[in-house]
């Protein structure tokens, strides 16, 4: 496998004013192939969002190399788009205008971006809410706006930070299926952070298990399930074995503690 996304010995330390420095990432290494769907699981606070932010180009790492398609990441770029964990919708923009944000910043003309945004609004099931403001939406609806916004820019690399965490079980199933469809059709590379083991197994080619903070990639688990995957697959023995394997890797990291 040729590395498309490559992180080599990435270190990142937060130094908040008047507070103890926090090492969020320590010697973080991963390598993801083009068109791969890779999930990242790990305990809360282990540095998953931080890693995505570094990859997105929002936070420069203190040391180490981060590269996409052989090019060092030195800032944000329109080859990537993120679905943010806290949604990050502009509260003064309607659903439609929020979804259009990325296209607008790409310089796409209004007449061209309308149909694209409309398509993704419909895809995430928000048709009829185009004129609503974020505060008029439920948490799950806001999250889907964030999803539509990222998809609308048609990025090569899709970074997804617990994108379905606020969704109800049924909507989550629908969104998972849509995501797989888009990923397969458009040949995107997806990095997907989740706390749900089942979701990670169902969607991914590989799952990266992170240690507790400071976060490192502890173990990479291959998911050799055939594609396209369907809902029934979740009740197979193979699926459940993979879930168990993943759970065993993860549970050692999941002590409730205050590790400094």
């Amino acid at each position: 496998m040729v590395a498309y996304i490559e992180a080599k010995n990435v270190n990142l330390i937060f130094t908040p004013p008047n507070r103890m420095p926090v090492t969020a990432l320590k010697d973080f290494n991963i390598s993801v192939g083009e068109g791969e769907f890779v999930s990242i699981v790990g305990p809360s606070g282990c540095g998953k969002s931080t890693f995505l932010n570094v990859l997105l180009g929002l936070i420069p790492p203190h040391s180490g190399e981060m590269a996409i398609n052989g090019k060092r990441v030195s800032g944000p770029g329109q080859d990537r788009a993120m679905v943010f964990q806290e949604f990050g919708l502009l509260p003064w923009r309607t659903v439609l205008n929020n979804v259009e944000l990325g296209l607008e910043l790409k310089g796409v003309a209004t007449s061209e971006r309308r149909p694209v945004s409309q398509k993704f609004i419909e895809m995430v099931g928000l048709a009829g809410f185009e004129g609503h403001y974020p505060h008029e939406l439920s948490g799950g609806m806001k999250q889907r706006v964030g999803l539509a916004r990222a998809l609308a820019t048609d990025p090569d690399v899709l970074l997804m930070d617990e994108p379905f965490a606020a969704l109800d079980a049924q909507t989550r199933d629908i969104m998972q299926a849509e995501l797989l469809r888009i990923w397969q059709e458009a040949k995107k590379t997806v990095l997907f952070v989740t706390h749900q083991i089942e979701e990670a197994v169902y969607l991914s080619d590989r799952v990266i298990v992170m240690t507790k903070r400071p976060g490192r990639a502890k173990k990479i688990i291959d998911i050799p399930l055939p594609r396209p995957r369907d809902y029934e697959m979740r009740v197979t023995q193979e699926f459940n074995d993979l879930k168990l394997q993943l759970w065993n890797e993860l549970k050692d990291e999941l002590t409730v503690h205050g590790n400094g």
Partner: peptide, 27 residues
């Protein structure tokens, strides 16, 4: 900060950050 990061991640320039986030936010 989150909103600034969001628009920056979509490729906004400093001027666009001011226009899209800073000014409406401080209205």
């Amino acid at each position: 900060r989150l909103l600034i990061n969001v628009v920056r991640s979509f490729g906004a320039s400093e001027w666009q950050i001011n226009k899209l986030v800073i000014l409406p936010n401080s209205m």
